[in-house]
Amino acid sequence: MTGWLGRLLVERLIRLAWLLPLAMAGLFTLVSLAPVDPITAYVGARVADVGPDQRAAIAQAWGLDAPAPERFALWLGHIARGDLGSSITFNAPVAEVLADRAGASLTLIALAFVISFAVGLGLGLTAAATRGRWPDRAIRGFAVVLTASPGFWVALLLIALFAVGLGWLPSCCAAPPGLTADEADLAARLNHLILPAATLSVVGTGPLILHSRARAAAFLESPAARHLAAHGARPGWLVWRPGLRHALGPALAVHLAGTGELIGGSVLAETVFAWPGLGQATVRAALGADAPLLLGIALATLVVVFLGNLAADIAARLLDPRLRQA
């Protein structure tokens, strides 16, 4: 019974084996070609005090004067030893920055994932249950509006409404002013999590509503549903039991496969809400020409997206036995 899982894992490991070097070469090329000068970024405001000789000395100390292939080989060698380099902007090893900030980002992304999955599946099934009638049309309209709404705009709307207008929720940060996240109690931390998570959940909800609706509706119109209905199954039961079962696999697969979009959305959400996660670090690294941190975040993102896609494939096969044979 578990033969399919072993086959899938081997197949994906092979894919990772060529994908990772390819992505690393691509990332390195992009960062090398980027029109930012790490020395200028490092020197910052003291630019007037630093002459050409000193710049050359820094470049030599960092190995920036070596040809690109040599620098790439050096970088690969360091990564192979588990050394991702040091972040200029945070003045700390990249691995440490990643470890410090991954928790905040993963909390945000996980909560957004759960919210959009529950809302998307729930609304999708409700639409399927009332298909052709006004709740269905309203939900489909809502899904299209959600899909078309940029994340930063939703964030600003939410802040205007819940933080400024109603004053119910904080508009920024992971903890009350003056406290670190560790000092704040759980209630305060959850309170700060709601708006960023709601913003981020907007990304995946629209497609999920339409997908769940389509799958559940296809089941409800299938001969299998008619067979059950002919022998006493009520419409509500058909939607929320076997209908939910039919929508669950495709919905979870689509949602997990959208991990990349969720991470992309988290960069925006973390910036707008000053959330101390990797998304915010990405923006600071990009603005500060912090090549080691950018590369480290990109590699971590690559692994997370890869794992998300792998989880999508496993979920799809677990929930639909017909897919296990291929």
């Binding site: 299938s222 001969p223 299998a224 008619r226 002919a230 022998h231 039919h246 696999g249 639909d320 017909r322």
Partner: peptide
């Protein structure tokens, strides 16, 4: 009624489950 098409069986449920469900 035992319908004409075997697609009347739920593709995502085991045979025993479907019988018990009915």
């Amino acid at each position: 009624l035992a319908p004409q098409a075997v697609t009347a069986l739920d593709p995502l449920a085991r045979a025993g489950t479907q019988i018990a469900r009915m």
